[in-house]
Structure formats: C-alpha cells, structure tokens
C-alpha cells in the first residue's frame, strides 16, 4: 500500500492534468465556433460556384474538346491522394481515422495495379504515412491555417495540385478529410476532385440557359482551377471544424476520466488513513490490556 504522501502527490498530479485538459477543451470549443462561422461564411461563394459548374460543366464534359481538368486525361493509372489531417494531435481519433482510410484506399488501388502518389496536408498525416509510403509522398504541406484557414491556404494546395497535373504526374485526384457533422461526430469522406464530380442542382437543368461572355471555353478554362481551389478550401474548412470538434470531445472525456481518477485515489487514500488509525488504536489497546 502506497503511503499517504504518495497518494497526495498522485492526486495533485492528476488534478493539474485535469486543469490542462479542461482548458484545452474550452479553447477547442472557441476555435470550433470560429471554424463553423468560417464554413458558414464561405457557403454563398461555393454555392454560386456550384451553380456555374453545373450549368457549364454538364454540357462541356460530353463534348470532345473538353479541358482535361474537367474530362480527365482519359486514363486512370496514376492516382493522387491528398491526405488532409491536422498539424497537431490530442484530438481523439481524428487523424488516425483519416490515415486509416488513406491506407485502405492506397492498398485497394495498388491491388488494382494503379500507381498511387500522396500529397500530405498537415503534419500528422505525413508523420504517420512516411514510414510505410515514404517513397510515394510527392510533397507535404504543413502549418496551414495559422491562425485560421484562409483562402490563400487552399490556393497553396491547389497550385501544387495543378502544377503536378500540368506536368502529367497523375490522372485522377481525390482528397481524404473529415466532414463536420457535430462536435461529437465527423464523417470520414473521400472526394474526387480531378476530374470533378459535377454538382447536381435539380432546377439548374430546367432554368433559363445562360449566355456566355466571352465564350464557354474561356470561362471554363478560368473556372476549373478556381473550382478546384474552392473544393479544397471547403474540405480544409470542414476538416478544421472537425478537428476542433474531435479535440473538444476528446478533452471532455479526458477531463471526466481525470475526475474519476481523483475520486478513486481520494477514496483509497482515506481508506489507508483509517486503516493506519485503526491499527494504531489496536496497538495501544492491546498494549494497555497486556499490563
């Protein structure tokens, strides 16, 4: 049985851990709110972009001279997987679920005889994938979104992807990230971004056909790279909100566990204190009786 002093030290150490996790939880809650607001604010732009893609892309995708960025290269041999994780840990299963899905996807695609290249966004994903797939990582981008994810961050990623695409480094690209549903629930998502999945807007097909200025090709050539950036931006925002949500619930349960531990240790400490007192009493009484 540890001594009283040891118990006291132990309790104190758990208490300070609890203070830290509690603080982290509150910070995550504040950051989560900001991330949600950012996602909300980005919606009008993304929605307008979707409308334009739907009305322009649908027609152009079928035609012969469609840009490669829309129609694909005609092959699907080389796949670029963008793995978007966080830079920091202590957020429950957030990073490992993404990495697990990435590994699964890589194995599945390799089994089909495809080549997989990896672009890591976020330090955690890079660190976890480096060991097994180090040679396939073409690049990694870290320290995005400080203090918060901006459009410039998405552009950095998109520029890299476009540069690789223009160099003919890959045929198909998809991004793995966590879609935000609530603070306790994130939905693991793998979304194809090149060639893009065209958004389906129910009333777009029936709505008035647009006129184009200067012409469809010019607009499309301008629109596609920007659409890619918007898709990445959206994924990064969702990911940022999910990260804070995951961290918040992880820190919440850590705080609760620390509380349970303190309770248990206190109980043990009191028991052992009482046992000592009882033992001393017995010693005194039996000593007195022996006289």
């Amino acid at each position: 049985m540890p001594s009283l002093k040891q118990f006291r030290l132990r309790i104190r150490s758990v208490q300070s851990t609890q203070k830290i996790t509690k603080a982290m939880k509150m910070v995550a809650a504040a950051k989560l709110r900001r991330a949600q607001e950012a996602a909300q604010a980005g919606r009008p732009y993304a929605a307008a972009m979707d409308r334009m893609m739907a009305s322009l892309g649908g027609a152009a995708a079928g035609s012969a001279g469609a840009p490669k960025l829309l129609a694909g290269t005609g092959s699907d041999k080389v796949h670029l997987l963008i793995v978007a994780t966080a830079d920091r840990g202590l957020c429950g299963g957030f990073n490992s679920t993404i990495v697990r899905e990435a590994r699964r996807a890589i194995r599945a695609m390799q089994a089909e005889g495809k080549t997989v290249k990896i672009l890591c966004v976020g330090r955690k994903g890079r660190d976890q994938l480096r060991r097994d797939y180090g040679s396939q990582i073409v690049d990694s981008i870290t320290d995005l979104g400080r203090p918060r994810i901006g459009f410039a961050d998405a552009r950095k990623v998109a520029d890299k992807v476009l540069e690789l695409f223009d160099a003919g480094e890959f045929d198909v690209a998809s991004i793995v990230y966590n879609r935000f549903r609530s603070a306790i629930s994130q939905i693991l998502t793998r979304q194809q971004i090149i060639p893009p999945a065209l958004p389906e807007i129910p009333d777009a097909a029936g709505a008035a056909p647009y006129e184009f200025e200067p012409d469809e090709e010019t607009i499309l050539a301008d629109l596609l790279p920007r659409n890619l950036t918007v898709q990445i931006y959206r994924a990064l925002l969702e990911n940022a909100a999910s990260e804070q949500g995951a961290r918040m619930s992880a820190m919440d349960s850590a705080t609760r566990n620390a509380g349970d531990m303190i309770k248990r240790l206190t109980l043990q400490m009191n028991r052992s204190r009482q046992a000592t007192i009882t033992k001393e009493l017995i010693e005194i009484i039996s000593g007195a009786e022996a006289l």
């Binding site: 334009m52 009305s55 322009l56 709505a207 008035a208 056909p209 647009y210 006129e211 184009f212 200025e213 200067p214 010019t218 607009i219 301008d222």
Partner: peptide, 13 residues
C-alpha cells in the same frame, strides 16, 4: 456591362 432588372441570364468573366 450594366445589369438592370430583367437582364438576360448570363455568365461572364
């Protein structure tokens, strides 16, 4: 170009 109410539907750069 100026956009007035009832403008023809258009997408432009």
């Amino acid at each position: 170009f100026g956009v007035l109410p009832g403008h023809i539907p258009m997408i432009s750069t």
